[in-house]
Simulated scan of single mutants.
Amino acid sequence: MATINWAVDPTHSEVQFKVKHLMITTVTGYFKNFNIEAVTADEDFTKAERVVFTADVNSISTNNEQRDTHLKSPDFFDAEKYSEVRFEASRYEAAGGNDYKLHGNLTIRDVTKPVTVNVEFGGIVVDPYGQTKAGFTVNTKISRKEFGLTWNAVTEAGSVVVSDEIKLQAEIQLVKQA
């Protein structure tokens, strides 16, 4: 059984988060700089020996510089002290068809909690340049407050400005390393 290293293809991958603003609309943000290290037995991801995702907090973009600066501040991610979001998988489990559950630990700031991520496996193909690629659609929901992201404000009518629930979504393409 051969061990295979996989690296993220950043030009064909994206990581985003969605949060309700004033409980009436959704704001989308991205981590522009992120990395994924995966090691599998053959091309079978259910036999993953290692899957680690990291995102650079300083690469957050919501298309609003003032909001991005606030997100990087101690009110939220505190990027100066905690520059990285990290997910380290412990188990990749078949959930039927092309659906899987990726179990692991998510670390935001100085808080680490177990998280289960939904994964839709898109398959493995060889691209026109001879590179073997694997594709995944990933999503989950987390409570930001559980990770120490507790800042909020209340409107005059009593609504919260930022919801607790954060939706995390990603389109990931991995490249088999020689």
Rank of each mutant, 00 (worst) to 15 (best):
T140E: 04
R50C: 01
A38S: 06
S143W: 08
K32L: 10
T62Q: 08
A2C: 03
A38F: 04
T116H: 01
K20S: 15
G104H: 08
M23K: 10
D68L: 00
E37W: 07
L106G: 02
A79I: 07
E37A: 12
S13L: 07
Y30V: 11
G158N: 06
Q173T: 12
F87D: 02
D99P: 08
P10V: 09
K81T: 04
R91D: 15
V119G: 04
V111C: 01
S163Y: 06
T107V: 08
I24D: 04
S159L: 13
N58G: 12
G148R: 13
N105S: 07
N105G: 04
A79R: 00
K101Y: 08
K167M: 13
H103V: 10
P128Q: 13
S13G: 03
A157W: 12
D164A: 08
V8C: 07
G104K: 09
N5M: 05
K81N: 15
V160L: 08
I36L: 01
E80Q: 13
K101A: 11
T46K: 04
N139Y: 05
G123V: 12
W6E: 05
N152F: 02
T26E: 15
L168W: 08
F136N: 05
T112V: 05
G29L: 04
N64M: 14
T40H: 06
G135P: 04
H21W: 06
E171N: 13
R91M: 03
P10T: 11
G97S: 10
F87I: 10
F17M: 09
E43G: 11
S143C: 09
A79Q: 05
G148A: 14
Y30R: 10
S163C: 05
K47P: 01
N152S: 09
E165L: 12
N63S: 15
G123E: 11
D9A: 11
T25L: 14
L149S: 00
R91N: 14
I124N: 15
K47G: 02
D68V: 02
P10F: 00
R86Q: 08
D9C: 11
V119F: 03
V160W: 03
A178T: 00
T25C: 09
T116D: 14
S90E: 14
E49K: 10
D75A: 03
Y82D: 02
H12K: 04
L168V: 12
I108A: 06
R50L: 15
D164T: 03
A134H: 01
K101H: 14
V115F: 07
V126C: 05
G29I: 08
E49S: 12
T40C: 02
E88Y: 00
S143G: 08
D42C: 07
A153C: 09
T155R: 01
V154C: 01
E14V: 02
Q66K: 13
E84P: 02
T25P: 02
S73D: 10
N152I: 09
V161M: 13
V126N: 06
F136H: 04
N152G: 07
A89L: 06
G123N: 14
T28N: 09
V138T: 01
V160D: 12
R86T: 11
A7S: 15
S90H: 07
